[in-house]
């Protein structure tokens, strides 16, 4: 039950893009076409799940026992950067077709704040799914990461579809490009506000 609550909360209620503003750069940068948006979301989902798994273990098996929690930011970003590099190399070797599809997005993910944001959030923020406030355990953290990435993908794909239509419509000159995209994102965020209160 708790896992279902985590998934609903991360995908709809606290959507990582439209409610928490993490990962807005790729959201505005690579959302011109639905196909690229789906590719980017796939890559983010993969990296976010693996990165959260690894950083969670780094936090509780290395940083906490050694009492060096203050090294969190530095350690996490190094772990994520090397992980992205490693995933790229492994993917190239094992599945060239998947590498072709995700390849160009992978280097971009290192500086995607959603990945570092979720990694830090699961070890510092207390969640209140199903009763008392508590920190997530390993399984819940990974589920939360995957659900967040799905929420990212959902918002990204919806937004890319809207932007494809916007290309064809006649917008005032000053609004062309990013400004009209931002206003559209605002309206999309308003729609997602309808989900608030669904999960506490």
């Amino acid at each position: 039950m708790e896992y279902i609550l985590i998934i609903i909360s991360a995908v709809f209620v606290n959507n990582i893009l439209l409610a928490q503003f993490l990962g807005v750069c790729p959201f505005l940068g690579v959302s011109n076409k639905v196909s690229t948006a789906v590719g980017m979301s796939g890559a983010v989902c993969f990296v976010m799940a693996v990165a959260t798994l690894v950083t969670y273990m780094v936090q509780y098996y290395i940083l906490v026992p050694l009492h060096i929690e203050f090294m969190q930011t530095i350690t996490f970003i190094v772990v994520i950067a090397s992980l992205v590099q490693m995933v790229e190399i492994i993917l190239k070797k094992i599945s060239p077709s998947l590498y072709q599809a995700l390849g160009i997005f992978l280097p971009l993910i290192t500086t995607n704040c959603a990945v570092l944001g979720v990694a830090i959030m699961v070890v510092t923020k207390e969640f209140t799914f199903g009763g008392d406030a508590h920190l997530l355990n390993l399984g819940q953290s990974v589920v939360y990461a995957i659900a967040s990435a799905l929420g990212f993908g959902l918002a990204m794909t919806l937004f890319a579809g809207l932007r494809e239509q916007l290309e064809l419509s006649n917008v005032p000159k000053a609004f062309k490009g990013i400004p009209i995209a931002l206003v559209t994102a605002g309206i999309l965020a308003m729609a997602f506000m309808g989900f608030s209160g669904l999960v506490k």
């Binding site: 439209l18 409610a19 503003f21 609004f175 990013i178 400004p179 009209i180 995209a181 931002l182 206003v183 994102a185 605002g186 309206i187 965020a189 308003m190 997602f192 506000m193």
Partner: peptide, 11 residues
């Protein structure tokens, strides 16, 4: 709230 951020920045 969230929508205001996007819309104000756009304008």
């Amino acid at each position: 709230l969230a929508p205001g951020a996007f819309i104000v920045l756009g304008y």
